[in-house]
Structures are given as structure tokens and as C-alpha cells.
């Protein structure tokens, strides 16, 4: 099964598709997989990314300038799938592009492209009825966000609605690198453990090998997003190579730390 965390902690890599262009995104994704990413989140650029910090906002703007669409991201997913059979592929998006395409059509095309799961940033479990039906029908894993502000009752519902894993948000706030990991993060993962058996991936603000290793002590997987997108932004012309190096650096520290724990 592709949506599998092969190591502990597993690495989930987020990319904003179409930044700087879809061809390069494909190379970036393949380089990240080559370097050891277990799951790839294909970020769909959106005009109004309310949950994102400045780095992903800028990347989304660049991607939208040349019209990157959800349909193109799904085509990209199919291309990646051809080259990488054992990597998990998740479409990470805001709701409106999916609604515009039609939920059922989206799920059908995503399944055909070899996508494993979907995460919709602005879709809480309460509003997910039709989406849950369609993802189930087309055998896609719906991944929901869990936040430090979510009371236990909500975490339970999130665990019940999710498949594959639960995405725990490390702190209140938008995406983007932070110096320190909030205490919130560890607590949230502990609270999730009590209500769900699904693996927990922790994301938001994780950018260094040290943080990666630290999170690995209590979560099953670590999502790195803005730091990847920033690496793409800063390495024009050699984006894929730079992301490959970045991923290798992230993974280099963890074995020593995780065996010492």
C-alpha cells in the first residue's frame, strides 16, 4: 500500500505545484522521493490561502500566474505515480477548486491518477458528508487536520473520519518555519493517541533536522512544507537538486537521535 510510513519517523514532503512550473515540480517531487520522502503532498495553489504563511502564499501566487489548476495537479500526480509506485501521494488543497470540479469527478480523476489520499484545509469534519461518501466510493483516504485548540470530542470525530493518518497541526497559526516547536505539539499527539489508532503526522513550522528528530520521538511522521517551498524559491534553476540535498540533510540526523531515545 503506498500510503505507508516505511520508517519512524516517516517524512511527508509538501510542494506547491506549479512553482516555478509543473515540469520542475515533477522533478522536485521525484528528487524528494529519491532522497527518502515516504509521502508527497501535492499542494494545489489557491488565490486565497488563509491557512498559509508568506512562503506558501508567494509560491501560490507564482503558480497561479501561469494558471496552474487542480486538473493539472492531478495529471502531475499520474506522472509521478508512473515513476514511484511505493510512495504515498496526497492532494493538499483548499475546498473551492474541488467544488468547482465537482467532488465526485475530482475523486474519480484522483483515483485514476493513482492518488492515495486528500487533505482539504478548510473542510472540517462537520461539513464533510458528501466528501466522505465520495472518497470512500473511490478508495481515497480522507486526511483531516487536528489542532491544538480542538477539544477531545472533536479529536475523536477527526480520528473517526480520517483514513491513512491524522495530520496534527503543531501550533495555532499559519504554515511557516518556527525556531522552536511549541509544547502544544507533544500534548496534541498524546491526546490523539487516546482517541485514534491511526498514525499521526505532525506538521506546521518544522524545518530543521533537529526538529525533525525531536518530532520523531513522539509522532509517526513529520510534514515539512514551507522549508521545502522556500528551498525551491531560493534555488532557481537547480530546484530539484536543492530539494534532494535538503531532504537528505533532514534525514541524516534522525537515526542517531532516534536510536538514542
Amino acid at each position: 500500500m503506498p500510503l505507508t510510513f516505511h520508517k519512524k519517523p516517516a517524512l511527508v514532503v509538501y510542494v506547491t505545484c506549479g512553482d516555478p512550473d509543473l515540469g520542475t515540480t515533477r522533478e522536485i517531487v521525484l528528487a524528494a522521493i529519491e532522497a527518502g520522502a515516504d509521502v508527497i503532498e501535492l499542494g494545489v495553489p489557491f488565490s486565497d490561502p488563509v491557512a498559509d504563511g508568506p512562503v506558501i502564499q508567494r509560491a501560490s501566487e507564482r503558480a497561479l500566474k501561469h494558471g496552474t489548476s487542480l486538473g493539472q495537479v492531478l495529471t502531475l500526480a499520474a506522472e509521478v505515480r508512473e515513476h514511484a509506485q511505493s510512495t504515498g501521494l496526497i492532494v493538499f488543497t483548499y475546498l473551492n477548486p474541488i467544488l468547482r470540479m465537482g467532488i465526485e469527478k475530482f475523486c474519480k480523476v484522483a483515483r485514476a491518477a493513482g492518488v492515495d489520499g486528500v487533505l482539504v484545509t478548510d473542510l472540517p469534519v462537520e461539513e464533510a458528508g458528501e466528501y466522505l461518501r465520495a472518497t470512500r466510493q473511490y478508495d481515497l483516504a480522507p486526511v483531516f487536520l487536528a489542532a491544538p485548540t480542538s477539544p477531545d470530542g472533536r479529536l475523536k470525530r477527526i480520528g473517526e473520519a480520517s483514513r491513512g493518518f491524522v495530520y496534527a497541526v503543531s501550533r495555532t497559526g499559519v504554515t511557516g518555519a518556527r525556531q522552536q516547536l511549541a509544547d502544544d505539539a507533544r500534548q496534541l499527539v498524546q491526546r490523539l493517541r487516546r482517541v485514534t489508532k491511526l498514525p499521526v503526522a505532525l506538521g506546521f513550522g518544522i524545518s530543521t533536522a533537529e526538529q525533525f528528530a525531536e518530532v520523531g520521538e513522539f509522532a509517526d511522521a513529520v510534514v515539512v512544507g514551507s522549508a521545502i517551498v522556500e528551498t525551491v524559491e531560493r534555488n532557481r534553476g537547480r530546484e530539484a537538486a536543492a530539494v534532494g540535498e535538503f531532504v537528505r540533510r533532514l534525514l541524516a540526523v534522525s537515526p542517531q537521535l532516534s536510536t538514542s531515545r
Binding site: 472540517p124 487536520l145 477539544p151 472533536r154
Partner: peptide, 8 residues
Amino acid sequence: YVPETLMA
């Protein structure tokens, strides 16, 4: 339709 962080 908001991120989970705001639901509570």
C-alpha cells in the same frame, strides 16, 4: 468552512 484550529 475554516481550518480546524478555528472550529473551537
